[in-house]
Write a protein that binds this DNA or RNA. Sequence first.
RNA 1: UGGGGUGUAGCCAAGUGGCAAGGCAGCGGGUUUUGGUCCCGCCAUUCGCAGGUUCGAAUCCUGCCACCCCAGCCA
Length: 570
Amino acid sequence: MSDHTERNSDSPEHTPRDFIRTIIAEDLESGKHKKLITRFPPEPNGYLHIGHAKSIVLNFGVARENGGITHLRFDDTNPVKESTEYTESIKEDVRWLGFDWGDRLHHASDYFDQLYAWAVHLIKEGKAYVDSLSAEEIREHRGTMTEPGKNSPYRKRSIEENLDLFERMRAGEFPDGAHVLRAKIDMAHPNISMRDPAIYRIRHISHHMSGDKWCIYPMYDFAHPLSDAIEKITHSLCTLEFENNRPLYNWFVENCPVPAVPRQIEFARLNLSFTIMSKRKLKLLVDDGHVDGWNDPRMPTLSGLRRRGYTPEAIRDFCERIGVAKRNSVVELAQLEFSLRDQLNREADRRMAVLNPLKVVITNYPEDQEEELDAVNNPENADAGSRKVPFSRELYLEREDFMEEPPKKFFRLAPGREVRLRYAYFITCTDVIKDENGEIVELHCTYDPATKGGDSPDGRKVKATLHWVSAKHAFDAEVRLYDHLFMNPDPEDVPEDKNFLHNLNPDSLNIIEHAKLEPSLSSSASGYRCQFERLGYFCVDSRYSEPGKPVFNRTVTLRDAWAKIQKQAK
RNA sequence: UGGGGUGUAGCCAAGUGGCAAGGCAGCGGGUUUUGGUCCCGCCAUUCGCAGGUUCGAAUCCUGCCACCCCAGCCA
């Protein structure tokens, strides 16, 4: 099944980490089930997002831990909204996340014949009937949350008539909406989903899998439990909003001659601060051009996170850390970013890049001299080795790393102050060159040749180490900086007359067209990830990059104590 | 106002009658050629509220309050 490195697989399997694992452990221990089978059942009507990742990690994870298996099953019972474009993206995303369903790829549509047979079975048992009321009339008969519903006048049709009508529905004799097959349960049931729910509707539309074979399609409430039963799913894990449907789920399983009895267990779906998870709303962002597409790096879709530079390991780690419970909750985005940085810190190579360049001339460095300095690739991983970085008389430093009148807690470069250039030399600022508007255009500094490599033989200290790039050797590239797509931690928190679009962050994308990168970055391939020292983790964008002309996305910033100090000062 | 759920720190989350795990965030300190990482320390006398049972209650009982879900021929 999963072939990724199992960082957490050493966790004591005998101590369940959540209520679902506790239930499963009991069922396995009691012998109720000999083998665990779970399933991930997406409807192919959109792209997968980080919320789906929680479900995927849970379903595949719990099976793996217990020597069980997981099916990937497309819940494709509504051809009006589904397509193969979505099934393909879903398979790609599940694979990317690191999970393998093997030969267990299924579709609810694979079971249409069996489902139809069981619908006929229910009719024969007097437990289903064809209703010919209009959709609106059915709604009127349903009652309300506090009042019972009323029986449809068609509820007492004979079994023979129901059989005939249902067969003709299937044969295409009726237009959409003319009839519907309903389970005969109890129109006065306090649980509205038990008030004779529809189980088949007429839809003259071809299906992405079954083509034009059918013009009637089963409803979720009917198809899902029975598909689970057909596949002998032992534990059917879904989100809280289906809790109301569980009695119905069980009713179908109990009233059809199924080969196994699955158990539905509900858990809270993932909510993330500064993020929306609704497929409908994400689609709106795409359709209205607020983002670049489903895989825009600011989107919470798996394809968006992937393009942004997130790793599957980090997403899995996040899903494992947040746990599984029944209480509605909103996880802070910082939690996701922690898992990301945790991995990238260990694995990403370091590089130097200057986003907002300020020219610096080392006045006592020989005009035509150049040298190659050794730079460690990853201080967290000696195996990553080192590289050479060119140094010369003219350099670029980050503008924010110099202040003419530094406040007390600023310990980077300032007039007369000495700092270290990473892997290079100590330099001291001697002059500040300004243009006619008083803007700083250049700095003059001197270097101490004895500090080559960054160590001072006399043991003197500097309070800051800055990243830099040799001007002559710098490689120009576009760098895209991302911020929260929404300004409010709760995007839905808006004034009376507004919707979530009101909270869109106008500064969620900041494009730097000419960042100065160290030359080793010029040949970076799409998807390449590294840390730009002191700035954050970046990756080569898969959409805008061209051979020899990489465009970088900022995946996430580094934690920044100085930024925190500045923020507090305000 | 019917039914189904859920309330433990700023955010997640264990805990199931024996004296409030862990993570994130935050704060303080140490190390550091990234103001990163790492390390150390602090961060709930109290578990939605009020009663009750008990030697002992976040855990059991009663009542109340708050929030979420359900009236698709969506899933």
